[in-house]
């Protein structure tokens, strides 16, 4: 089984369903639009902001504010790529054609990660550039220290969200179940754990909180025990665990 054949096949699969285009488009549009809106509101409210907030203001991070919502579309993308194999019954056809399940799985994840990364990169740069344009006098520049890292990091963050979702979907198989777990997790549970002081220290190690550290440029006065790349590393470990779990289950289960 030549891996190149399976990669081509998976690419055909992903480009021939409309969900690929609409999930990735929604991720881009929502993230950028919400980021621009929040940047614009911030600029308008600048005068009423407390001095302390003005001093620690992070124009780069604020332009990524849309990601909290846009990442949900990325989750849908990751979930659908994997779980529609199961919900449609395609998995049996696929595994009869490619019985080497490891090759099948790795190819699918790899092929889906590429468009996710490209869209994430466009999204991150668009969010940053448009957000800064709206922020006007309070803006950051791409050449400022840590800014380019934050923008590229934002793209990696979004991509890893999709990858994590693929792993979880491979474990759970059902799209409804996977979305039912991931959506509340990222949209409700993680923010709540991060906001309550008792659980804050645990919440930091959740994939999205750890990963989003890389988008912050100004980190004055917080006590987070890891740096930007450390945070992204933690998120990558979560992804690796989810992917490994998906692989083991795929290997063992009847299709």
């Amino acid at each position: 089984m030549a891996v190149a054949q399976v990669l081509r096949s998976e690419w055909t699969k992903i480009r021939s369903v409309s969900s690929t285009v609409w999930t990735l488009s929604v991720a881009l549009v929502v993230t950028v639009a919400l980021g621009v809106l929040i940047s614009w509101l911030t600029r308008r409210e600048w005068g009423e902001m407390p001095a302390r907030d003005r001093l620690t203001f992070d124009p780069t991070f604020i332009s990524f504010a849309g990601m909290s919502l846009g990442q949900l579309a990325m989750i849908v993308f990751g979930v659908l790529v994997v779980s529609t194999e199961y919900s449609t019954g395609m998995i049996r056809t696929s595994l009869a054609a490619v019985p080497q399940r490891g090759v099948f799985y790795a190819s699918k994840i790899a092929v889906a990660t590429v468009p996710a990364f490209v869209v994430s990169l466009v999204t991150a740069f668009a969010s940053f550039l448009l957000g800064q344009a709206v922020l006007g006098p309070h803006r950051a520049a791409l050449g400022d220290e840590g800014v380019l890292r934050a923008v590229v990091g934002g793209a990696l963050y979004m991509t890893l969200i999709a990858v994590f979702s693929m792993g979880v979907a491979a474990m759970l198989r059902s799209p409804m179940l996977a979305l039912g777990v991931l959506m509340p997790f990222f949209f409700l549970l993680s923010p709540i754990l991060g906001a309550v002081s008792a659980t804050k220290k645990v919440g930091r190690y959740l994939p999205d909180q750890a990963g989003s550290r890389i988008m912050q440029v100004v980190t004055v006065g917080d006590d987070v025990p890891y740096g930007p790349w450390g945070g992204l590393g933690i998120m990558a470990l979560w992804c690796a665990a989810a992917l490994a779990g998906g692989y083991l289950l795929l290997k063992r289960r009847d299709a």
Binding site: T12, K13, S16, T88
Partner: peptide, 16 residues
Amino acid sequence: NANHGGRSAYHHLLCL
């Protein structure tokens, strides 16, 4: 029904 309903017959066979 072991195919993705959103994919055309041509692309279903092509990926295989």
